[in-house]
Simulated assay, not measured.
Amino acid sequence: MELRSNSDDSKSTFCLVDEDHTFANSIRYTLNQDPRVTYCGYSIPHPSFNRVNIRLKTTGDLAKEVFKDGCLKLKLMCCHVRSTFDDALSEFKETKTN
């Protein structure tokens, strides 16, 4: 769910269900690396609820598009880490069997 400022599409709060600090901190870090982002932070309203609020303010670009781009970049980083790990694991197994 997205909560936008009344007339400014460059500011939004995204409410994500079934997420915690793991995703929230990762996407916050990723978005803060984007030059279009002036502010990105997150909060967890209550520890009993699996919900995260991510607040995003951009330099003028649509917050929804910047958030989407950040999610895609984070996904690519995770795929790279997974691929690197799988390659290293295969190489390790090969050296142990030889």
Rank of each mutant, 00 (worst) to 15 (best):
C79K: 10
I27V: 11
F85H: 12
S5G: 04
G60Q: 06
T58N: 07
S26N: 04
D8T: 01
G70S: 03
D61Y: 13
T97L: 08
I44Y: 03
V37M: 04
G60D: 09
L31F: 04
V17K: 08
D61R: 15
K68W: 10
N53I: 03
D20G: 02
P35C: 06
L89Q: 10
N50T: 12
N53K: 14
S90K: 14
N25P: 00
M1P: 05
G70E: 00
D20I: 01
D34E: 10
D18N: 14
L76T: 06
E19D: 01
Y42W: 15
V66P: 00
R51M: 14
M1A: 09
N50Q: 15
Y29C: 03
I54Y: 03
R55L: 12
T38R: 15
P45A: 11
F49A: 15
L89K: 12
D69W: 10
H21K: 06
T30A: 11
N32F: 06
I27G: 00
N25L: 05
T59L: 13
A88S: 09
Y39I: 11
V81R: 07
V37W: 04
L89W: 07
T97N: 10
E2K: 12
R55T: 14
R51A: 13
H80F: 08
F49K: 15
L3W: 01
D34S: 08
S43M: 13
V81E: 10
H21N: 11
H21M: 05
D20R: 00
D34Y: 12
A24K: 01
H80D: 13
D8S: 03
D20V: 02
N50G: 14
F85A: 11
L3C: 01
S26E: 03
P35W: 07
T84L: 08
I54M: 09
N25M: 03
L16G: 01
F23I: 08
C40N: 02
S7D: 10
C78V: 13
E91D: 09
C79A: 08
C15Y: 04
T58R: 09
D8W: 02
L3T: 03
R51L: 15
K75Y: 05
C15T: 09
K96N: 04
N50P: 07
G41M: 06
V81K: 06
M77C: 07
L3K: 10
R4V: 08
A88R: 06
P45L: 07
M1G: 09
S48K: 13
A24M: 02
A24R: 01
N98D: 12
K11W: 02
S5Q: 12
D34R: 06
L72E: 14
L76H: 04
H46Q: 15
S7K: 07
K93P: 00
C79I: 03
Y39D: 05
Y29V: 05
E91Q: 12
F14I: 14
L31T: 02
L72Q: 12
D34T: 07
C71G: 07
S5F: 09
K96M: 09
T38S: 13
E65T: 15
S7W: 02
L72D: 14
K75N: 10
A63Q: 04
L31M: 11
R4C: 07
N53L: 15
S43D: 14
